[in-house]
Design a protein around this nucleic acid. Structure first.
Lengths: 186, 186
DNA sequence: AGGGTTGATGTCAGGGTGTGACATCACGGT
DNA sequence: ACCGTGATGTCACACCCTGACATCAACCCT
């Protein structure tokens, strides 16, 4: 298939994360990344729609984890149950093995406004996907949207805590705690 | 102060909205906007940090409406009450007079991914500002964040309905209806 | 084994975004 | 009348991203 070494996409992601950590997102040019990955700038843009996307690869897998868990939830589940099931689907995705990488990645994102902006878009997309999955399970509007937003709110807060420096609890534990707090709110 | 005509910033915003509606966001260059506003491209960037920001001016006023209403809420209000008070503060901001302009603006935003991305960031920023205002009223974490997210969720959905083509209800009415649905969720 | 196909990569050119540095001009104060 | 102040204009430039075309390796088919 490829011309020389395989895994061009992965090499670009690795090189990008390293360079962003070393020099910052803005200071790193796409040419820098391509050079370290032994590819050209043009090839970078064949793998990623723009410079930021190199950090956000694999979002589709996460969306599938959410929507798959919602589709697999037992019959008779309430909107809230379904939304929680979707969030629970993320637990397997973000296991302990993935944690160090997630932490490095988050350091880069938190340090740059443009990347934080892209992250907020991804969360929005995720919420919309969850709302669609809820509608497919028969939940009507506006309940589907409200439940989806509530679920993503918990996921986002839980994830932020999960990647925080001294945190040792699993993502699932944090999520369950936050869901309890959310229920107590009403 | 200015060299020729005053109100350069406003002329740029007007010109931009018109051009975006006519030709789309991507097809419109900053040079086009500056030309119609009888200014230069460089001056555009003195007023707005980037091309997208010309559409999102005045966000600070909205943030103030939220945080001001939270600060002014009566003593003894719960986290949920405070968050709802903040959202209610947006009602005066988006009155009937502003509605046509908001609709035109939303058409432009909905039509372009880059603008939708910026919009999601603005909502994030708003949620964070609300969370800060709640903490200043003595609400602790994670309740402050959860309540802020819930409030912004309602505001966002209500606003989307408010600017929808055939909607006639006021923003406040839509918000109250959605808050009721949100309470019923739990 | 040889030739054609396919798909990823390389090369080149160019428009658009955003910024730094410096010049210019109108206005207000003195 | 002079001088500062602040907004604007001019110029140069790095970087982002894309279209068009060329190139090369792996695979398929006979």
């Amino acid at each position: 298939m490829g011309r020389w070494e395989p895994g061009g996409r992965e090499r670009l992601q690795l090189a990008a994360l390293d360079l962003f950590l070393e020099n910052g997102f803005e200071q790193t040019t796409v040419a820098d990344i391509a050079l370290r990955a032994e590819l050209t700038e043009r090839t970078f843009y064949r793998h990623f729609a723009d410079k930021r996307e190199v950090i956000f690869g694999g979002q589709e897998v996460l969306v599938d984890a959410f929507t798959g868990a919602i589709a697999a939830a037992p019959d008779g589940a309430s909107a809230r149950d379904l939304a929680e099931a979707g969030v629970a689907g993320a637990e397997q995705f973000f296991d302990e093995e993935r944690r160090p990488w997630s932490r490095r990645r988050q350091i880069v994102i938190d340090a740059d406004p443009a990347l934080r902006e892209r992250e907020s878009l991804k969360m929005n997309t995720l919420a919309e996907a969850v709302a669609v999955a809820l509608r497919e399970r028969g939940i009507g509007d506006p309940v589907a949207e409200l439940a989806a937003d509530a679920a993503i709110s918990v996921f986002r807060m839980a994830f932020a805590r999960w990647v925080a420096p001294d945190e040792t609890r699993s993502l699932g534990d944090i999520q369950r705690e936050l869901f309890a707090a959310q229920r107590a709110l009403a």
